[in-house]
Design a protein around this nucleic acid. Structure first.
Lengths: 192, 192
DNA sequence: TCGGATGTCTAGCGGTGCTAGGATCGATTC
DNA sequence: GAATCGATCCTAGCACCGCTAGACATCCGA
């Protein structure tokens, strides 16, 4: 059985290699440049190999999305962990979220813009996605306010962050307002 | 010169036909289905004709976006026109905006998600885009609050609406929270 | 050592956005 | 009214895309 185990290990390693290559290529040249041919060349295999790991390009995007969601959750938790006071925690969360989106635009797109064939807001939603939402809710439910469902509040706050992230990155908002926008968002939405 | 004028008229009519066909096809089957071949068949011309009107597919998307932005501005103004009280006006604006996004998903994407080769938040931003932002600001600047730049406030409110619109449509938010989300957004952001 | 399964590659399908070059049509001129 | 000439449009094709069938090699277990 040791042979099979070794092969499984090698397969898993190659799968990680594919996801890493897709992510790197997407961040470097955008998702349009992530073609099966480019990807195959980067991992030094032929294109059909990709299809022995994933059903198609969509699933590769989905894999990058799951990896990214886990990182986003970790980033949010790390940013809010040592912060005193609910208001400051929320502000730290907002900055960490927007910072992640800015530093990893392609990954952010994979999670929230592109079709990775993943289910959202359902029972069969993959764990990393649920956990990323949970990471937001941990800090945000403190400031939802009286009688407001924490899930509802988190959805709204998240949507605002998402709007800021996407509109900022596509150049649809003024750069100089970036920081005041976050301040205003936190001041108005969070009940401290 | 009458001949030239007639030809110009015919050209303009055909250009409108192309934009209308692109929009209709996008709403019916999504932007992926809007290929130059499909488009050419719908307008009953060959593909190269498209390129005598637009530099490429991107510019066709841009044309749909401009048309849509004008409609969005009109929809927002119409929805807020006869409403009494700033709070109710803002709520009407929010609902009108989200309603437009839901009813015209492909057009909304053309304006705010896809690359139509348009400039945003700059001097050379096309008039319809500036005007759509102006339409939002007309109602929103009333409730920006003391000492808050109306432009800044409008950007934030708009970003929140945009986040709600996009996340809702891609199934990333719970449907049953749709109305309370709007209520909460207006209650928290608008200073009445 | 050999048979067979497993894995990988080459080649190719139908599609995409876009363009070069020739044919055709129609307005203008004699 | 006929000829010319320019504008207009189409056919055909480029390089690329995601994806797959089938040949081939390679390595494992008997």
């Amino acid at each position: 059985m040791s042979v099979k185990e070794r092969k499984d290990r090698e397969r898993a390693a190659r799968e990680r290699l594919i996801v890493a290559a897709a992510r790197e290529l997407a961040e470097q040249q955008g998702w349009d440049a992530v073609t099966t041919r480019q990807l195959a060349e980067r991992i030094e295999y032929s294109q059909p190999v990709l299809y022995s790991h994933f059903r198609g390009k969509r699933e590769i995007i989905g894999a990058v999305a799951l990896e990214g969601a886990a990182e986003l959750a970790a980033a949010v938790r790390a940013a809010t962990a040592g912060v005193d006071g609910p208001r400051e925690r929320v502000a730290a969360l907002a900055r960490a979220y927007l910072d992640f989106a800015e530093r990893n635009p392609a990954v952010y797109d994979a999670i929230f813009q592109l079709d990775g064939g993943l289910a959202y807001a359902q029972e069969d939603t993959p764990e990393p996605l649920k956990d990323a939402f949970a990471a937001l809710m941990e800090t945000l439910s403190e400031v939802a306010g009286n009688g407001i469902d924490p899930g509802l509040f988190t959805e709204l706050f998240w949507a605002s962050l998402h709007g800021l992230a996407t509109l900022t990155r596509t150049g649809r908002l003024l750069d100089e307002y970036a920081e005041p926008r976050v301040e205003l968002l936190v001041d108005r939405l969070a009940m401290v």
